[in-house]
Amino acid sequence: MIFFKDIVLRKAKDNELDELYNLETQNIEWTKFNGPYFGYKKPSLEEYNNNTFKKLQLGKTHLVIEYNKVIIGVVSYYWECEDTRWLEAGIVIYNNNCWGKQLGKKVMIAWVSNLFESLNSIERIGLTTWSGNKRMMKCAESIGFQLEGRIRKVRYYNGVFYDSMKYGVLREEWAKYEYNVFL
């Protein structure tokens, strides 16, 4: 488990399948910000159980976000290219009542700290978003991520072209921050 202020990142418990499934699928406002140009297809409970929930139970690449003892979302990472140690991190806060409270900032501090601590082979953590997600861009920049690239007008959503925004932070840059995260 990872603790940072009022945030806990942890594995999913066996009895949380329905809660997590409902959190993702009942209020899909979050899909307007999390790559909406890809479209969202609601998984069946069985699909969710066999994919996302299994990853959350393993707790390696996916963890549950808990705020004040209530599950509000998930964090994850994936390899863009494991051979070159190119890692990308992500976050989804499903509960829109938790938006605008800087919880994403706390979550990302805890998650990035954990990734650098547990994956000694990486020197950089990336985060990709789109220019339509102003809160994610602000969050990334506020914790030390640098804008490394802007791929112009490659995300088409609701009749408008948006840019893909590539952020990254290096291990030595992250080490300069004194975040008191308990891993």
Results as ranks from 00 to 15, higher is better:
residue 53 F to D: 11
residue 105 K to S: 14
residue 154 V to M: 12
residue 127 L to I: 15
residue 62 H to V: 08
residue 71 I to D: 11
residue 131 S to Y: 04
residue 66 E to N: 01
residue 116 F to T: 03
residue 113 S to W: 04
residue 55 K to P: 01
residue 99 W to P: 02
residue 39 G to H: 03
residue 142 S to Y: 04
residue 121 S to N: 07
residue 137 M to H: 02
residue 136 M to F: 06
residue 141 E to W: 01
residue 84 T to F: 15
residue 113 S to M: 07
residue 92 V to Q: 06
residue 80 E to H: 02
residue 141 E to A: 14
residue 143 I to C: 08
residue 145 F to Y: 10
residue 48 Y to K: 07
residue 157 Y to G: 01
residue 65 I to P: 03
residue 45 L to P: 03
residue 94 Y to Q: 09
residue 101 K to D: 01
residue 76 S to T: 10
residue 123 E to R: 09
residue 124 R to G: 00
residue 67 Y to T: 03
residue 106 K to D: 12
residue 154 V to R: 08
residue 69 K to F: 05
residue 81 C to H: 12
residue 113 S to P: 04
residue 126 G to A: 13
residue 51 N to A: 14
residue 150 R to E: 13
residue 166 K to F: 09
residue 107 V to T: 13
residue 104 G to R: 12
residue 149 G to E: 09
residue 75 V to Y: 00
residue 57 Q to F: 00
residue 69 K to G: 03
residue 47 E to L: 10
residue 95 N to T: 05
residue 105 K to D: 00
residue 40 Y to P: 04
residue 54 K to Y: 03
residue 88 E to W: 06
residue 38 F to G: 00
residue 148 E to H: 10
residue 70 V to R: 12
residue 97 N to Y: 07
residue 143 I to Y: 05
residue 159 G to L: 11
residue 118 S to I: 09
residue 94 Y to I: 12
residue 56 L to D: 03
residue 44 S to T: 15
residue 113 S to H: 12
residue 162 Y to S: 02
residue 163 D to I: 06
residue 163 D to R: 03
residue 118 S to H: 04
residue 141 E to L: 13
residue 122 I to F: 02
residue 81 C to I: 08
residue 38 F to N: 10
residue 124 R to A: 05
residue 86 W to N: 10
residue 142 S to W: 05
residue 51 N to C: 02
residue 78 Y to K: 13
residue 136 M to H: 04
residue 43 P to N: 09
residue 77 Y to M: 10
residue 91 I to A: 13
residue 39 G to C: 08
residue 79 W to H: 12
residue 79 W to P: 09
residue 132 G to M: 15
residue 58 L to P: 02
residue 99 W to S: 07
residue 117 E to Y: 06
residue 133 N to W: 09
residue 147 L to F: 00
residue 106 K to A: 11
residue 141 E to N: 07
residue 154 V to S: 11
residue 91 I to P: 04
residue 150 R to T: 15
residue 122 I to A: 05
residue 102 Q to W: 04
residue 52 T to I: 15
residue 100 G to C: 04
residue 84 T to L: 14
residue 159 G to I: 11
residue 67 Y to G: 01
residue 155 R to S: 08
residue 123 E to D: 07
residue 105 K to P: 01
residue 131 S to R: 09
residue 118 S to L: 03
residue 41 K to Q: 12
residue 119 L to H: 02
residue 115 L to G: 02
residue 144 G to H: 01
residue 121 S to W: 00
residue 139 C to H: 00
residue 126 G to V: 06
residue 45 L to Y: 01
residue 101 K to R: 14
residue 66 E to Y: 03
residue 70 V to I: 11
residue 158 N to C: 08
residue 84 T to V: 15
residue 104 G to V: 05
residue 147 L to M: 14
residue 99 W to E: 11
residue 137 M to P: 00
residue 54 K to R: 08
residue 74 V to L: 13
residue 53 F to K: 04
